[in-house]
Design a protein around this nucleic acid. Structure first.
Lengths: 354, 354
DNA sequence: CTGAAAGCGCTTACAG
DNA sequence: CTGAAAGCGCTTACAG
């Protein structure tokens, strides 16, 4: 009992039988927990030699910092929540990638969730995040998100940043593309190629994005003196499947559209696949534009003419705005529109006169 | 000071100036925190009437449960970590969707991360998860994951479940498809269509999956008495881009392959896009098989012949295995192989005799 | 430069 | 059925 080997130094290095905590290190080294705590966080208050001793011992003992305990004390958790419609959608995935890169740099952990446009699922996520003491939340709000749900976060000290979509009457920082302008770019491009009967495929009026994009299409037509025919609109899911299924409908329209403005790249690719089952090739028999300029757009066949929508920029800006807010500044309130740009590839071509 | 209105009951309902905690509810109601705590968690120890009063007051005050405090006490956090190569890859996204569904049911929060095959990023994630007191981790291990990194989790009471990939000499529950068997299905399918010069596109030997798939392809050829030509293999990224770029290489092979077994659906779709730029159509001029049966495979053009790889099943089983472990049972150790199945569509066709 | 002590907001025995 | 008290593992003033 008296001179046996110290039980800590078992064979095999950092073998954690009893949980190692700050106080374990403190006792082993004959220091106070205060000093150990400061040393581990590189406080200049601690002597260099002491800091080294502490850090070495921490590694040796396999110490694991308990962030729950720390954040209970400091009320900063290092957790940021991100909730979007569906991370499987490459549009959001590209945004997330940029957010991840930015948050990693600040050593924030991020918690991800889909809401699939369920307001309940979204509120649930916000509540969980609050319970975990989340520092902030970046969200692409679900359709019909009540202002109260965002306020819930903000009132409890968890700032919110909005991406891709907007909630009316809310002054939180919001980053998204200028949809109305962007879709007009695509529509104008088709008009300049001689097209006059242009369908609009995909999307709904339930989101601000959906309304803006339809409006942009309508405006561009009107400006060119082309009559707007609501029958040329096929609303629907914003997915490849949605575009694929719209193809039959598109091809059987009595107005015989020669071009399609699609809600996004996914719909456009699906539509191109669909019409090609009928032997038609985009860029030859019909013209198709996408929206977003996903990484995939350039390697689609034919390569997709589309509108760059700045996913990476949206993600990066949103993350930075949040980090800024966490550090006390808050200049970023309000709407930040990113200017879309045309990307002309092979899926559009001049109208052939019969 | 004496008979002003109580400061809690400000106008506008649950307006949280001071942070509302358990003790706030307790004081307001003249109860102890113990009783309030039990009431909120539906303990049968508490009288029904008391429970109702507590719950109503909690809502009224806008109380937010502090999970950090609770988990500091109970050492269960309700957090599960999930780390995969890249959530933007639909293969993983489909697995994640199943995991999410399963964990939601048990009210576990999940934290997601990509490791992009960086062992450091992966270890970092595991450490963060430990610091947050994660209950468990589901991972598709990065290439060359050291056993020690998994042990780090397990030794600190955080069980690990492996998906899609394996770490040698590790007995943790592992769920994946039977790659060697599955790729043989695809190869045999092409052989039965008369193909003899069959290329293998994409993948590397650095993952167990990569080795298994190449081996399955080799085995199928040998069994059919076809000589294996290593020159017919084009290793590469497992992405659409990778398949797209392999097309040139594939078309210029001196052996003139008539078919391609692709590492996965993404590579296959990329390859089909690539060869179609040269005017060749899969299912007519060449035959192409994919692997995974992503949702996208069925709507590709041409619809992709592929191998169902059970993503949803992998995700569901992994999540259940983890939940079981957290509840004390641990029968699921070791490897669980899911049997792949052939899905024949339009991208493969009988060899045309010239 | 280091230590003693209080406290973050819960839950858990233990009493009654 | 309810309450008083200790403790989870940190950090933060405050002393020295």
């Amino acid at each position: 009992m008296l001179n046996g080997p110290p039980s800590q130094a078992g064979p095999g290095g950092p073998c954690v039988a009893q949980k190692v905590k700050l106080s374990t290190i403190a006792e082993t080294l004959g220091l106070s927990t205060a000093t150990v705590s400061l040393a581990l966080r590189d406080s200049p208050l601690v002597a260099d030699a002491t800091r080294e001793r502490v850090k070495e011992k921490a590694v040796e003992l396999g110490y694991i910092y308990n962030r729950r305990a720390a954040s209970l004390r400091t009320s900063r958790s290092g957790i940021v929540g991100v909730v979007v419609h569906d991370i499987m959608n490459p549009f959001y995935a590209e945004i997330l990638r940029a957010i991840e890169t930015e948050l990693d740099r600040s050593r924030q952990t991020f918690i991800l969730s889909n809401h699939y446009d369920s307001v309940d699922k979204q509120r649930n996520f916000i509540e969980t995040l609050l319970q975990l003491g989340g520092d902030g939340v970046i969200m692409s709000p679900a359709i019909d998100t009540p202002v109260a749900d965002i306020k819930l976060a903000e009132d409890n000290g968890m700032p919110a940043i909005l991406i891709a979509r907007q909630v009316p009457e809310l002054d939180v920082p919001t980053f998204r593309g200028d949809d109305s302008y962007g879709i007009a770019l695509a529509t104008n491009h088709l008009i300049s190629l001689g097209h006059r009967v242009i369908a609009m495929i995909g999307g709904t009026d339930q989101t601000s994005t959906g309304r803006d994009r339809y409006q942009g299409y309508v405006n561009a037509l009107l400006k060119a003196g082309i009559e707007v025919d609501p029958g040329l609109r096929i609303p629907g899911p914003r997915t490849k499947q949605g575009g694929f299924e719209a193809a039959v409908n598109f091809l059987s329209m009595p107005q015989k559209p020669t071009a399609a403005v699609c809600w996004n790249d996914l719909v456009a690719i699906g539509l191109m696949n669909g019409v090609s089952r009928a032997g038609l090739v985009a860029g030859r028999d019909i013209s198709v534009t996408g929206y977003d300029d996903l990484e995939e757009a350039a390697i689609a066949t034919p390569a997709l003419t589309t509108v760059w929508n700045g996913q990476a920029e949206v993600g990066r800006s949103a993350a930075r705005a949040l980090l800024d807010k966490l550090n006390g500044s808050s200049e970023a309130n309000g709407l930040h529109l990113i200017k879309p740009e045309m990307r002309i590839r092979q899926s559009t071509a001049p109208l052939k006169k019969d």
